[in-house]
Each structure stands twice: as structure tokens, then as C-alpha cells.
């Protein structure tokens, strides 16, 4: 998932006894593993939190097209170009499913788009980092999609039906993306000395930003507790980050690359790796709009939207004319 620090009601989780009968029935349905559908009653906080979370995820897919799109015209073979283009196209498709899922909660895609463009709604911090060499296409697939999958797989069981179903499709495609990223990494890590250097450099730059994707520790967060009670968040941030490191560290070994963390060490007792925390000050700077590419990313999206205005208006005008002509003919 690409949602970070999604705010919930902030009021803390209420017990079943504190709820009125309607809300209690709603919570019991979730507790029993049932799905909530668009026409069902739901608490206002559940709806708002979901809109924030799904919207943030959708925006991340759309802005996430940019760092990889940066290399489509420079892909080194016809096959690599086709695979990368298909991958970035999938991301646009994911954005589309997710906007549709959010629309079932009563917010329009246009409204969400405006909130993204104005900076009111956020997208994942990771897409504010630059892609500088071809190895970054490998690192993004391997690490960024790898981290996203950690979160998205459990979300296939999330309580909101349209979101869970969108996630089933997305997960199938994401695991392909992750594999193609690893495939690029393998070629680079086993290639010429220059390619190997690019691969290590990409890992150095993307390692900590990938760990940040899970968000800071949320053990104490009232927002997370509420989201977990509603089953729109399935695991804690620390739990997922640990799982990611445990899975990725041996892959880096296999590639012959070094994770840039002197403290990375297998801990027999906990059955997982010990590792260093990322620089959370940097993370909050990025969230505030001070990421290395934050300005460029929003500039890019705004330009595409502004320059496309005449096209969208013309399409609508033409459709209206056709409808009117059809009515007049009847």
C-alpha cells in the first residue's frame, strides 16, 4: 500500500458497549469477517478514513507513474521498453480502480484530483525520490513494489468490499512488477563493473526511503488502532517493515549487493533481522513537500492536467452534441 499516516477519527477505539445498536451491528459484522458494501450504513469516520486512505493510494499510483516514466524513453532494449511501459500503464490502471472504489464512498475523481494537485491530499513519500540510472528501474520494482506488496496482500481481506476487490487485481499485477524489478537488478548486479556500480548505488539510495514507506512506528497511534479495528489497516507498520527486511536481506545477498546498514544482522532470538531505522526527520520533511522531487512531481501533474483541459472540455462538448442530436432525431 502507498498510504502513510492516514488520520482516522482520532478519538480512540470504542468498545461494543459504547456503541449505539447500528454501529454495534456494523462493528460485529467486521469482527466476523463480513464485508461492508457501498449501500450499507457506515460510521462517518469509517467513510472519511477510507476516502483518505484509498485516495492517497490512488494518487500514489498516478504520481508513481512519473519516476519510472522517466526511463521509458531511455529503456535499453525494445523488450525492456515494452515491459516498463506496460508496468507504468498498469499503475495508471490501478489508479483507475482505486478512484472507482473511492467514488463508491461519495467523492468524485475530479474532486480527489483537485485535492492532489493543490497539495491537500498526499501520496506516498517514496515517489518524491529521483530515478537516476537504469538500475533504479530495478530497485523501484524490487524494493518499492516489494514494500507495497507487503501491505497490499493483507488488504485483499480488508472490510470494505470494493477496496478489497480492487486490491485482488492490483496484487496480481504488483507481484509481476516486483519480479521484473528483481530481474533487472540481477542483470545489473551480474553485469559489467559499471552496471554493478549502478545497482549498488540504486540500492544505497532506495533502501531507507523504502523502509519509510511503511510509515513511522504506529504502536501508540490512536488513528492506527481505529483503522485496525475497522480492518482497513491489517498490520502495524513495524510488523510489515520487519517482514520486508527479513525477506529482502537474503535477496540482496543473492544479488551480491550490500544493504547500506552496518547494523543489519540476523537475530536468532527474535527470528528476524535487526536493522537501523531510517531518518524520520527526512521522512517528515518529504511529507511536508520538501522531498528531492516533490515540487517537480506536483508541477508535472499540474501541467498535464492544465494542458489537458481543452481536451477534456472538447470530449464532453462533443458527447453533449451527440446526445442532443440523437434526442432531436427521436
Amino acid at each position: 500500500m502507498y498510504a502513510q499516516m492516514v488520520k482516522s477519527t482520532g478519538e480512540g477505539v470504542r468498545s461494543l458497549d459504547q456503541m449505539d445498536p447500528q454501529e454495534r451491528a456494523f462493528q460485529e459484522r467486521i469482527d466476523a469477517g463480513g464485508k461492508i458494501e457501498p449501500k450499507d450504513w457506515m460510521p462517518d469516520g469509517y467513510r472519511k478514513t477510507l476516502v483518505r486512505q484509498i485516495g492517497q493510494h490512488a494518487h500514489s499510483e498516478i504520481v508513481g507513474q512519473l519516476p519510472e516514466g522517466n526511463w521509458i524513453t531511455r529503456a535499453p532494449t525494445l523488450e525492456r521498453k515494452a515491459i516498463l511501459l506496460a508496468k507504468v500503464q498498469d499503475e495508471a490502471g490501478h489508479g483507475l480502480y482505486l478512484y472507482c472504489a473511492a467514488e463508491t464512498l461519495g467523492v468524485t475523481r475530479d474532486q480527489m484530483t483537485r485535492d492532489l494537485l493543490s497539495g491537500k491530499m498526499k501520496y506516498s513519500s517514496i515517489f518524491n525520490y529521483p530515478t537516476l540510472t537504469w538500475a533504479d528501474m530495478g530497485a523501484v520494482g524490487w524494493l518499492v513494489d516489494g514494500a507495497a506488496i507487503m501491505n497490499q496482500v493483507p488488504l485483499q481481506r480488508t472490510s470494505y468490499g470494493p477496496y478489497a476487490r480492487a486490491m485482488v487485481r492490483i496484487c496480481k499485477e504488483e507481484s509481476f512488477h516486483q519480479r521484473q524489478g528483481f530481474d533487472i537488478m540481477m542483470k545489473m548486479a551480474r553485469g559489467t563493473p559499471e552496471q554493478k556500480r549502478m545497482a549498488q548505488d540504486a540500492l544505497n539510495r532506495f533502501w531507507y526511503p523504502s523502509l519509510m514507506m511503511f510509515g513511522p512506528s504506529d504502536a501508540e497511534s490512536v488513528h492506527s488502532a481505529q483503522s485496525m479495528a475497522w480492518k482497513i489497516k491489517m498490520n502495524s507498520n513495524d510488523e510489515l517493515r520487519q517482514k520486508f527486511v527479513d525477506l529482502t536481506a537474503p535477496q540482496a545477498d543473492y544479488l551480491g549487493l550490500t544493504i547500506p546498514d552496518e547494523n543489519l544482522k540476523w537475530n536468532e532470538e527474535k527470528g528476524g533481522y535487526d536493522f537501523s531505522e531510517p531518518d524520520w526527520d527526512e521522512f517528515f520533511d518529504v511529507l511536508k513537500g520538501n522531498g528531492p522531487c516533490s515540487v517537480e512531481r506536483l508541477e508535472d501533474r499540474n501541467r498535464a492536467w492544465d494542458e489537458g483541459r481543452w481536451v477534456r472540455e472538447a470530449m464532453l462538448a462533443h458527447a453533449d452534441k451527440k446526445r442532443a442530436a440523437k434526442l432531436a432525431a427521436e
Binding site: 521509458i72 495508471a92 483507475l96 498535464a304 492536467w305 489537458g308 470530449m315
Partner: peptide, 18 residues
């Protein structure tokens, strides 16, 4: 392919990539 990520609307982005 130069359009990828910059089309006037999401559906067009997908169609141009196709």
C-alpha cells in the same frame, strides 16, 4: 511512449500506452 503519465485524462494515458 513519451506521453506516459502525462495524458489529459487517465483513460487516454492507458490508451496511448496501448
Amino acid at each position: 511512449s513519451e506521453w506516459c503519465g502525462h495524458a489529459p485524462v487517465l483513460e487516454e494515458d492507458i490508451a496511448l500506452a496501448n
